[in-house]
């Protein structure tokens, strides 16, 4: 759950503040989903098949701690990767809507 100030900042940075509230809500939800899906793809691209299988096994037994440490071990720059991917999706969105 994001607080109101952060939500306002997101809306302002996306440049969608003039749109109706329900539309803004839908855009934010869809962008969040797109970023999440893109992050998953970026992570999968960096993992070997056997590492992917290992993680799926850990997900199935809900061992979140081990998943996190496994991912950090396999992809030490995972935080930067998430940030760069999220920024790329947002940037693409902003550039495309500003082109008109």
């Amino acid at each position: 759950m994001i607080d109101n100030q952060i939500k306002k900042n997101i809306i302002s940075k996306l440049g969608i503040e003039k749109l109706p509230q329900d539309k803004i809500g839908k855009i934010m939800k869809k962008l969040e989903e797109n970023i999440q899906r893109k992050v998953v793809l970026e992570i999968l691209d960096l993992l070997k098949k056997e590492d992917q299988e290992e993680i799926i096994n850990l997900i199935e037994i809900n061992d979140d701690k081990r998943i996190s440490s496994f991912l950090s071990e396999k992809i030490p720059v995972i935080d930067s990767l998430i940030k760069a991917t999220a920024e790329a999706v947002v940037r693409e969105f902003k550039i495309s809507i500003s082109k008109g």
Partner: peptide, 25 residues
């Protein structure tokens, strides 16, 4: 499986969109 994990664990208390927008500032 990955999506489920990402949604519940990776960014507790924040959002990918906030990260992508640098919305903390």
């Amino acid at each position: 499986g990955f999506k489920k994990f990402m949604a519940t664990t990776m960014l507790v208390g924040s959002s990918f969109l906030a990260v992508g927008c640098n919305a903390e500032k």
